Amino acid sequence: MTRHVMVTGAAGGLGSAIAARFAAAGDRITGVDLREEPLRASVDALASAHGVAVDALTADLSAPEAGSVVDRAWERSGPIDVLVNAAGIWPATPLLDMTAAMWDHVLAINTRAPMLTTVALGRLAVAAGRTASVVNIASGAAVRARPGASHYCTSKAALEMLTRSCSVELGGHGIRVNAVSPGYVAGSSQEVNPVTEEYTAAVSGNALGRIGQPDDVAGAVFFLASPDAAWTTGAVLRVDGGSSAGNPALPVHWAGTTEAQSPR
């Protein structure tokens, strides 16, 4: 069955890969982003590669009316079956340089916008008697703080709880809400969220020994939105090469056992 899938942040590396995974399955795509030209290029590429119906909607997801983009997509292209909240920003702001405006902007895009779009979809789906699936893009930063990212880490920790809260309140209406929590993924938009080579080298260690690719995350999102995950809601799926499991680069902490550690 062809679905209508809406992806925010669809002009970015991760959002475009997620949209492409659904398009490859024949789903109709509505891409949402603030940047009009990259967004149009992204959805046009999907239409050309997969022969699916696409639409592009520009929206400022930091605005209090961010949820209205869901209403626009529903009106233009029909009921939405899957909503993927992939838009996000991660500026580097040392804590002692933080201002209220900087903090609020990150939380507005990374946490408030997914809440508003989920609420908007929930209202429309309930009124129409339809089910739906929401997948939020969280981050390993939800459970691991790092310098310069207090606002980002907080926004993603809040997004994980938002995912669980929405799943509890919407599950009775047949609306599933889950999250994918990626580790470091190559190919994100350097224009919006640049990272240095030094940072990449510092965070690239994991049990599987490679940096994640956008398709790794896209596959997990596709699964959570599929009938194969029909009894899954409120889950946070960590797709991080094992980085949340532990650090394989650490040496064995001691070469043997002390006398007090020896079995008796």
Results as ranks from 00 to 15, higher is better:
61 L>C: 00
62 S>P: 03
62 S>T: 15
65 E>L: 07
68 S>E: 15
69 V>W: 04
71 D>W: 06
73 A>H: 00
73 A>V: 00
75 E>Y: 09
76 R>H: 12
76 R>I: 07
77 S>R: 14
77 S>L: 13
78 G>I: 11
81 D>R: 05
83 L>N: 00
83 L>A: 00
86 A>K: 02
87 A>H: 02
87 A>Y: 01
89 I>L: 07
89 I>F: 03
92 A>G: 12
93 T>D: 12
98 M>Q: 15
101 A>T: 13
107 L>R: 00
110 N>M: 03
112 R>S: 07
112 R>E: 04
113 A>H: 01
115 M>N: 06
117 T>V: 04
120 A>V: 10
120 A>W: 00
123 R>S: 14
123 R>H: 13
123 R>V: 10
124 L>H: 10
126 V>I: 15
127 A>Q: 12
127 A>K: 13
129 G>Q: 04
129 G>T: 01
130 R>D: 02
131 T>Y: 07
131 T>C: 09
132 A>S: 12
132 A>M: 09
133 S>N: 15
134 V>Y: 01
135 V>L: 07
135 V>E: 02
136 N>A: 03
137 I>L: 14
137 I>A: 06
143 V>I: 12
143 V>P: 01
143 V>C: 04
144 R>Q: 12
147 P>T: 05
149 A>Y: 06
149 A>P: 03
151 H>Q: 13
152 Y>V: 01
153 C>K: 01
158 A>W: 06
160 E>T: 13
160 E>C: 10
160 E>G: 04
161 M>Y: 15
162 L>N: 02
162 L>Q: 04
172 G>V: 11
174 G>Q: 09
175 I>F: 09
177 V>E: 02
178 N>I: 04
179 A>C: 08
180 V>H: 00
182 P>F: 08
183 G>P: 06
184 Y>K: 11
185 V>I: 15
188 S>T: 15
189 S>V: 07
189 S>A: 08
189 S>Q: 02
189 S>I: 08
